[in-house]
């Protein structure tokens, strides 16, 4: 009886807008990032298929598990990273106000699912038992504590104003009150910076600083496992960009699926471009400097955003909210 619905669900999970689509989008995003980074640095940059070629090459290579490493954890963590990043995307509205799945409170779930890759970086690095991996792992987890608070505050503040804990609900709320989302611009800036930390990119790439600790957590990884980790980071970049687009840039979702999808691509392109631009502009911060920055500047600013949303909820939003 439900054959068609089961097939449809499988199609959605595995092909569109699930795994396959997300992987394609992630590789495209990596290309855009690398090309833009290269052009900004006055380099030529890779051809469009380079991320795919890298992926295929890594998938074909032998994977070496160090003798000292915990075999189970070493192999399992990259899969967890990818799974978590892909799962998070199901709750984010892409071209309409309705995400693939949604329930009240899914914004919390998405934020936690996006934390899992960082935890796997820590576990994978830690169980590699190499000194560089362990330092990288410790740095990953320390950095997590620094950027998660500003990120959570920045994302939850708009949710507070919208009065819903569902991303689809938030998207619906702001789409009808576009002016109110201007109030959250500070939050967007903070979330962008925190996303840099999450993706471990310059200036927050201390966990994989190649000049100090080779490749951090990923030092001992090779072959398919490394490919999975790299893919997980790319997917995380797309999902993070989608999250920011859904929360802070919820425009144009009423024009039908095609226009909505085009706008969605434009929005994540803008977010990814901002990420590339920032990694071009800065030097790598030391871990202590990064933590100081997050706690002394980003977190207080996120609190300001939270206060602004609270005040708005009590005053102007009352008038606007009544349809």
């Amino acid at each position: 009886m439900h054959w068609s619905s089961i097939l449809w669900a499988l199609f959605q999970i595995l092909i569109f807008p699930g795994l396959l689509f997300l992987v394609a989008l992630a590789l495209a995003a990596e290309f855009v990032d690398r090309k833009l980074y290269a052009r900004l640095q006055n380099r030529l940059g890779p051809p469009w298929f380079q991320p795919l070629a890298d992926l295929i090459k890594l998938l074909a290579k032998q994977e070496v598990v160090p003798d000292l490493a915990d075999k189970f954890m070493f192999v399992v963590t990259p899969m967890f990273a990818l799974t978590a990043a892909v799962t998070a995307s199901f709750y984010i509205p892409i071209w309409s106000h309705q995400a693939l799945c949604s329930f009240p409170g899914d914004v919390i779930v998405v934020l936690y699912l996006l934390t899992i890759p960082t935890i796997t970086f820590f576990l994978g690095g830690w169980y590699s038992r190499s000194v560089y991996s362990m330092i990288g792992a410790a740095r990953s987890i320390m950095q997590l504590f620094a950027y998660e608070i500003p990120l959570f505050l920045a994302i939850l503040a708009p949710a507070l104003l919208a009065g819903t804990w569902s991303l689809s609900g938030m998207s619906l709320f702001y789409a009808h009150r576009p002016l109110l989302s201007l109030l959250n611009l500070l939050g967007l800036a903070i979330a962008l910076v925190a996303l840099l930390g999450k993706l471990e990119r310059v200036p927050f790439d201390a966990p994989e600083a190649e000049t100090e600790i080779v490749a951090g957590s990923f030092t001992e990884y090779s072959g398919r496992l490394l490919a999975l980790f790299r893919l997980a980071i790319d997917v995380e970049m797309v999902v993070g960009a989608s999250l920011l687009a859904a929360v802070f840039l919820p425009f144009g979702m009423d024009f039908g699926p095609v226009a909505g999808f085009g706008l969605y691509l434009a929005k994540i392109l803008a977010v990814i471009s901002m990420l590339s631009l920032m990694r071009t502009l800065f030097a790598r911060l030391r871990l202590d400097q990064m933590i100081n920055f997050c706690w002394q500047i980003a977190a207080p600013l996120a609190f300001v955003q939270l206060m602004a949303d609270l005040v708005a909820k009590g005053t102007i939003a009352r008038g606007v909210m009544i349809p």
Binding site: N42, R43, V202, P203, A209, T211, T280, L281, A283, R284
Partner: peptide, 16 residues
């Protein structure tokens, strides 16, 4: 020096 502190943009510019 730029490369060692993770500022690859400086490396690319100066070497150009």
């Amino acid at each position: 020096a730029g490369h060692e502190v993770g500022f690859d943009t400086l490396l690319m510019y100066t070497w150009r």
